[in-house]
Amino acid sequence: MSQTETETTQLRVMDFDCPTCASTVERALAGLDGVEDVTVHYATGRVELTYDPDLAEPAAFERTIEQQGYTPRVA
């Protein structure tokens, strides 16, 4: 197994309108290249991401959330 350094980041989405919406965003983010782990919390709107910086492009995280119809914010 190759050793890769992962990085973590946090985003905030304040306008989730239902618990299922948070899980669909979570799945969309999990499908991105280089994303190793992602948790989206409906209650606080917090998005936790662990990714491989060689493969993933952090700007894509925000874009993906916007495409799902929500407003991401760096936090």
Binding site: M14, D15, F16, C18, A43, G45
Partner: peptide, 20 residues
């Protein structure tokens, strides 16, 4: 309904914003 839910939840979630 979704729009209003999103807005009101945003207010709830913002309770910590002033701390942040």
């Amino acid at each position: 309904g979704s729009y209003l839910e999103g807005r009101t939840m945003r207010k709830t979630r913002s309770a910590l914003e002033e701390l942040l």
